[in-house]
């Protein structure tokens, strides 16, 4: 059987995904160099079509769409990644505690997880951001609060299957404490499904962040792709590029993450990949 990397990188979909993500990452990191203007600054006449002067044209106020895209990539990626990391950390702790302790703790934690899975997540996120007042922090909090349940379930399942293995029993006999066993023995062995679920969550987080920004709940003073689509929607009839370009950026980025995430899953579970 081929190695993990051969399976992972031998998949053309994964390569296409990685290529696009690299482009986005470079643009996001070097945004101040690649687009050295404030994305809220007026650079030229409004509604200029994409051309040599302004790569993607200008918007209704004469702001550069290229600058918006580059700086928006930063906002969108940072919020999505931080929110996902928080959700993964929280969900992993909940799932690990539930799976490791079992019994009442497990019952209680899983009821809470199910509760959070039942309530409509996007509406919950809207209410949270509205009440906390729109800011980068409240976006992160809202997205994390609605995305941790699947992580908790995945980790719990893995912990349940790992905890009865010999190496965990050996650690118990060796006198390690619960925390040490969880962190050093159990969690590292649940990593692969955690990485797959987490990577796919980034894509969902980007979609949620853009939808919230589109509705006007984005972080004020920070340019983001969803905000650009929302700001351009009133000018759809006369300036199609205001809405189309940032939307394509969201679409391609989410698609790329899904491709890489699924490739990761296939490479980690080669027996299931053929279904």
């Amino acid at each position: 059987m081929k190695s993990f990397w051969a399976r992972f990188l031998g998949n053309p979909r994964v390569l296409a995904g990685i290529a696009w993500l690299l482009v986005v990452a470079v643009v996001a990191v070097f945004a101040p160099l690649l687009a050295p203007v404030d994305p809220f600054e007026i650079v030229d006449k409004p509604f200029l079509v994409p051309s040599g002067d302004h790569l993607f044209g200008t918007d209704s106020l004469g702001r550069s769409i290229w600058a918006g895209l580059a700086h928006g990539a930063r906002t969108t990626l940072i919020i999505a990644i931080v929110a996902t990391l928080s959700a993964v950390a929280f969900g992993a702790v909940v799932g690990a505690l539930a799976g490791y302790h079992g019994g009442l703790v497990d019952d209680a934690l899983m009821r809470i997880t199910e509760f959070f899975q039942t309530i409509p997540s996007f509406i919950f996120a809207i209410v949270l951001v509205a009440i906390l007042a729109p800011s980068a922090t409240s976006l992160v909090v809202a997205i994390a609060v609605v995305s941790w349940p699947p992580i908790a379930r995945v980790v719990r399942g893995e912990v349940l299957s790992v905890k009865s293995r010999e190496f965990v029993q050996a650690a118990v006999i060796a006198g390690q404490g619960d925390t040490a066993i969880l962190l050093r023995q159990v969690i590292p062995n649940t990593l692969s499904p955690l990485i797959v679920t987490g990577s796919l969550l980034v894509a969902t987080a980007i979609l949620t962040e853009s939808a919230l920004s589109f509705l006007g709940l984005g972080a004020p003073n920070l340019m983001s792709w969803g905000f650009m689509v929302g700001a351009g929607r009133s000018f759809l009839r006369d300036a199609w590029w205001l809405v189309t370009i940032p939307g394509v950026a969201i679409l391609l980025t989410v698609l790329a993450i899904n491709l890489v995430g699924e490739g990761l899953n296939d490479a980690l579970n080669p027996r299931l990949a053929d279904v």
Binding site: S210, V229, R233, V243, T244, L251, V254, N258
Partner: peptide, 18 residues
């Protein structure tokens, strides 16, 4: 399917209107 799965709702709506 995989493209539709990655498309933001609000953007599809606006594109269909366009």
């Amino acid at each position: 399917a995989i493209v539709a799965y990655a498309t933001p709702l609000f953007w599809v709506g606006l594109m269909l209107i366009l």
